[in-house]
Design a binder for these strands. Structure first.
Length: 721
RNA sequence: GGGCGGUUAGCUCAAUGGUUAGAGCGCGAAUUUGACGUAUUCGAGGUUACUAGUUCGAGUCUAGUACCGCCCACCA
């Protein structure tokens, strides 16, 4: 054995030993309940980062533990096409070549991005292996493969027929850069300083004005009313008179209306109403039946309806021009600095334009109710449990979910339009229109929100809606382990869609981990230059050290702090295990009589009995920690036991006996204790540090199994004198 | 505006109402020991943010205060 542990020499060899053994594929056993984790499919638009290493570590720990406990254990790997994210990523690649997706055309673009994601998937797969992920590669899935697409279409059709999916012209979040609608969740609010503008709107047949307050003066061109709170005394008289005001610069007259939603304390208490470009105004407009005048287009520029002075201008330049023109006409009351949150695109940080547009929506409230119910009934448990409250709060206030995206990369919406006006929803293109019998059907050009498909992941990976053997045995799954940052995006949707589609909860436990931060608690990002590349760490210090560093000193739901120091500390531990084993194996190989030794052959000392009892209580504590999803605690227990009890005390103690002892029975006992404690420790350590423990196990004399990965999880054992 | 967390050693974090509140790193000292210098041994370092309560017993439970962080949200 080498003097120090060299992970580079063992890891790939060990991984292929496991792969060749077929240990990652569970045997279906109807007499047993399976333990199942569906891997959160990494986005196929890049390589793995440290955040992925966190989920690999946590999930692999659970998987290896349950596999050793002899539960039929399945960890199903996959990859996500990640609609907008991948399209944005590939458009960046193209723009470096001076091209856009329009230069390629839809078909070619799709083909290229497919290749791009396929290459990434191959890299990711090899990276997962380097991290030691013991997932079942025979069952790996990709969200855009035909069988998955078919299931996604099936769900769309089912929901459409059940009236849960509808098409409507409503106000949505539009990213002018990505050129697509977004769901509310994909809008990130960023605090910015802008101007709060006070504009005088002249009252018709009067010398007076109403001063409105706005942060978006350019949208005034599309105003169709001015609104105040009905309880606002300042405007009581004007409301009673049912006055009209004249829209500055445009000249149109618009009514003064009353609406409860207007806060009298804000600005002057009077607000312009632009149903086409503000979500609240849209609602007010619907209620008061106001016309919708769209003055900003999907390109982020002013439209024809904005008038010839402004048409074609970017929003920002239109704003400047409007302020200037208002000022010239003496209609600008004042301007002040204003600090508030503006919606930006989650992917590209461009300011979101609320626009009225025809899109597909899911009636979320309907499917949210049963999801809320099962969590309230504790049929699904969150770890840590306080995320339940966060989940409730979001689910109780859920709004309709816009699922159509004007991008090319993703599942194309399974809807066909006929010239006769008929809308056909099906899993595949209908031959002819059943109404007019024409065959010139045109498919909806849009694609589905990525989360619409990933929301079905826990069951479509098993071939649902077919009642496959896998589906029947492995679904519902056991644990959904993922980051808290996608609780709403993903977890909530999986629960809703799981119950809706299959009538079953998709998983029993939701374990949420935190974000990875550096030792100064900074989020890791390329621009900050503080990213830790997990594969670089593996090459330098070994996968075991990385895994242990990611679990040590963390707790569920809390952010994970990693530093190189912490990884180095765990590499030292791997080396400690190695060297302890080196010592023990040296003595075990000398004489293997301990393998046949019965209890009566042994003469256990007080210290021997102490370490055996410590081993027992370590097993108990580790088991308890596993039951409570406290993996860090389990890791720390074994670390402490192995290093500070077994190495520091027992090995030092038995060392004397083996070198200087005269009595062969004492020596045999020493070897027996060393073997017993080392081999049990290897099992306890294996879920956390699979490589070094397997490497040592392979050298263990009289090993009962071909590999440690399929060993039996240790049980407490009682020894008498 | 609403909600959810956090505040424990110099730093980053653990701790299921129950011994003397623990790790890692860092710091100080010793040790070349027959597995390990990527080491070992020993040590210093804490009013568990603050105030009041519940309890035989509180870092842990309750209420409040102060800071810090995150999430959600239609003050335009």
């Amino acid at each position: 054995m080498e003097k120090t542990y060299k992970p580079q020499k063992s890891e790939s060899k060990i991984y292929s030993l496991w792969e060749k053994g077929g240990y990652f594929t569970p045997a279906i056993d109807y007499t047993k309940l399976p333990f199942v984790i569906i891997m959160p499919p990494p986005n196929a638009n890049g390589v793995l980062h440290i955040g992925h290493a966190v989920f690999v570590t946590l999930e692999d720990i659970m998987i290896r533990y349950h596999r050793m406990k002899k539960d039929p254990t399945l960890w199903l790997p996959g990859a996500d096409h990640a609609g907008i994210a991948s399209q944005v990523a590939y458009e960046e690649v193209l723009s470096k070549q001076g091209k856009s997706r329009f230069d390629l055309g839809r078909e070619e673009f799709y083909k290229q991005i497919y290749d791009f994601t396929r290459r990434n998937r191959e890299i990711m797969e090899s990276q997962l292996k380097k991290l030691g992920a013991s997932c079942d590669w025979t069952r790996k899935k990709f969200t855009l493969e035909p069988q998955i697409s078919k299931a996604v279409y099936h769900t769309f059709k089912k929901m459409y027929e059940d009236g849960l999916i509808y098409r409507g012209k409503r106000i949505i979040n539009w990213c002018p850069r990505c050129g697509t609608a977004l769901s509310d969740l994909e809008v990130k609010y960023e605090e910015r300083t802008t101007k709060l503008v006070f504009i005088k709107y002249p009252i018709v047949d009067s010398e007076d004005f109403i001063i409105v307050t706005t942060t978006r003066p350019e949208t005034m061109l599309g105003d169709t009313a001015v609104a105040v709170n009905p309880k606002d005394k300042r405007y009581k008289e004007l409301l009673e008179k049912e006055i009209q005001v004249q829209l500055p610069l445009v000249g149109r007259t618009i009514p003064l209306i009353a609406d409860e939603r207007i806060e009298p304390e804000f600005g002057t208490g009077a607000v312009k109403v632009t149903p086409a470009h503000d979500p609240v105004d849209f609602e007010i407009g619907e209620q008061h039946q106001l016309p919708i005048i769209e003055v900003i287009g999907k390109d982020g520029k002013m439209t024809e309806k904005a008038g010839k002075d402004y048409a074609g201008l970017e929003v920002i330049s239109a704003r400047k021009k409007i302020i200037k023109n208002l000022q010239e006409q003496g209609l600008l009351a004042k301007q002040e600095d204003y600090f508030h949150a503006v919606g930006t695109c989650d992917r590209c940080h461009t300011i979101i334009e609320p626009l009225v547009s025809e899109q597909w929506f899911v009636k979320a409230k309907k499917i949210a109710e049963p999801a809320l119910k099962v969590v309230r009934q504790k049929k699904i448990r969150f770890i840590p449990s306080h995320y339940e409250k966060i989940f409730f709060h979001w689910m109780e206030n859920i709004k309709d979910w816009c699922i159509s995206r004007q991008i090319w990369w993703g599942h194309r919406i399974p809807v066909w339009y006929c010239q006769c006006g008929e809308i056909l929803v099906d899993v595949k293109k209908p031959e002819t229109c059943p109404k007019c019998r024409k065959s010139s059907l045109r498919q909806d050009p849009d694609t589905l929100d990525t989360w619409f498909s990933s929301g079905q992941w826990p069951f479509i990976v098993f071939g649902w809606p077919e009642e496959t053997k896998d589906y029947k045995y492995f679904y519902p799954t056991t644990v959904m382990e993922t980051g808290y940052d996608i609780l709403f995006f993903w977890v909530a949707r999986m629960i809703m869609m799981g119950i809706y589609c299959t009538g079953k909860i998709p998983f029993k436990y939701v374990y949420l981990h935190g974000l990875v931060r550096d030792k100064d608690r900074q989020k890791m990002s390329k621009s900050k230059g503080n990213v830790i590349d997990p594969l670089g760490v593996v090459d330098l210090y070994g996968a075991d050290a990385l895994r242990m560093a990611l679990v040590f000193g963390t707790s569920p739901g809390r952010d994970v702090i990693v530093s190189e120091q912490k990884i180095i500390a765990q590499r030292r531990f791997a080396n400690k295990i190695w060297n302890a084993a080196r010592f023990v194996l040296y003595h075990l190989q000398e004489k293997t009589d301990f393998l046949e030794a019965k209890q009566k052959d042994l003469r256990l000392t007080k210290k021997d009995r102490w370490i055996l009892s410590e081993l027992n209580s370590t097993i108990d504590r580790v088991n308890r920690s596993f039951q409570n999803f406290r993996f860090h605690q389990a890791a720390e227990e074994i670390y402490n036991f192995f290093w500070h009890k077994f190495c520091d005390q027992t090995i030092e103690d038995i060392k004397k006996r083996l070198f200087k002892g005269k009595n062969p029975q004492d020596k045999l006992t020493g070897r027996w204790v060393l073997h017993r404690v080392l081999s049990t420790s290897l099992k306890l350590l294996h879920p956390f540090m699979p490589f070094v423990t397997e490497e040592i196990y392979q050298m263990l004399p009289g090993k009962p199994k071909k590999a440690l990965i399929i060993e039996d999880w240790p049980k407490r054992q009682t020894f008498f004198k």
